[in-house]
Design a protein around this nucleic acid. Sequence first.
DNA 1: TAGATTGTTAATCGATTAACAATC
DNA 2: TAGATTGTTAATCGATTAACAATC
Lengths: 234, 234
Amino acid sequence: MTAPGGTGEHGDTRGRDAGQGPARAVPPSTVARLPGYLRALHALAAEGAVLTSSDELAARSGVTSAQLRKDLSFLGSYGRRGVGYDVAHLSERVEVVLGLTTQRRVVIVGIGNLGHALANYSGFADRGFAVVGLVDADPDVVGTTVAGLTVQPFAELAGLVSGTGATIGVIATPAAGAQVVCDALVDAGVVGILTFAPRALRVPAHVDVRAVDVASELQILAFHDRRRTGTWEV
Amino acid sequence: MTAPGGTGEHGDTRGRDAGQGPARAVPPSTVARLPGYLRALHALAAEGAVLTSSDELAARSGVTSAQLRKDLSFLGSYGRRGVGYDVAHLSERVEVVLGLTTQRRVVIVGIGNLGHALANYSGFADRGFAVVGLVDADPDVVGTTVAGLTVQPFAELAGLVSGTGATIGVIATPAAGAQVVCDALVDAGVVGILTFAPRALRVPAHVDVRAVDVASELQILAFHDRRRTGTWEV
DNA sequence: TAGATTGTTAATCGATTAACAATC
DNA sequence: TAGATTGTTAATCGATTAACAATC
């Protein structure tokens, strides 16, 4: 983690040339916070800020400045002691690390209420993603136009993924169909899956899954709620 | 994302009847997995299973059996060595710990595409929550009926929360309005907030916040995607 | 220079894993 | 009993925090 003999290399703007292999391992907990830093950086840029400090950026991201500096240290040395961070430069470095310099293509499977909302969500395009395909199993939904795209039948999934070069699949189907959809996405070649279906998915090791379950989130809130509102029932 | 320093209280109200386990503080990482165990338990019950094992339940939840047993040990000793766990009994214990024996009331603020989808989501009612109010700032939306509820203006938020006894607020507004909505929810008395707005929220220590940012989730997937699809740009 | 702020170190804290004694 | 499986312990691993030397 630490470059031994680090005093030898001068910082410069290019604190780390990423020529060979993974620059350094970025811990998962750090990776998970990078999008939040990027959001804060974009907000600062929009306000016209050129420089920021770990204190300011941390406050806007909802973390401590110690944690922010620690996280950024895994990416390299892009700040200047006594001065702070250049907003534009740091944004760019974070985007490079997250792999956002190329727009990733996304297909959404399950065009119900949630799939509809996701297909129309402008935040995807703003943050590096293009929704390039929509798929649903319901014949009544297939053929309709949502967010400018024609919904395709499930049988077209593989062709859609390979034809568009999509690397990420979003599952917005009911729980019952989620594993079948997941398997089809994996077979079609996606390497990342974001699922909203309340069910654990099995995937091969080379595929990354992130799961969002809104009811689970509420249940976690309920755990604390219980302690605060004095609702104890045993 | 929990509020920094947020859930630091260890009230450790030992509100548990003796049973067979010492009441201990349940670690946050364990609490976050309990909804997944509960989902798996309900699925087993629906299939008619009466008993289960840590191996089976763990496989269905997507964790290791060691982790499952460790997690459950914080709740008490509800299994039987050499036998396994009674599905119904364990479900009930998990529900008690999560505070799901009373139905929690939820208000949703921001009735756009996402708010619509959430209001209509049957998974809430199935898993312990009742959506009791909808609020929007847009006069064109106020007064419309969504999921059987009439959308109220923002000015009615406080009255709605106190009138219904809601303890949880869901924020489905654009990022720009999220902090104002959050402050209003807190003032109105909610103790838990689930936000979908891509912005860090500031809340007092007694309020718990969980944040879901779908674009951030995709960005985290992109980090791994980059390594797998060979898209290196540095 | 004097003041400010990073990047890194070391200490602490928490979570996961592996193994097995207890016990059904 | 013999086999199965939990609940717990101890070891490992990873993440967070605090402090400060480096340096702009």
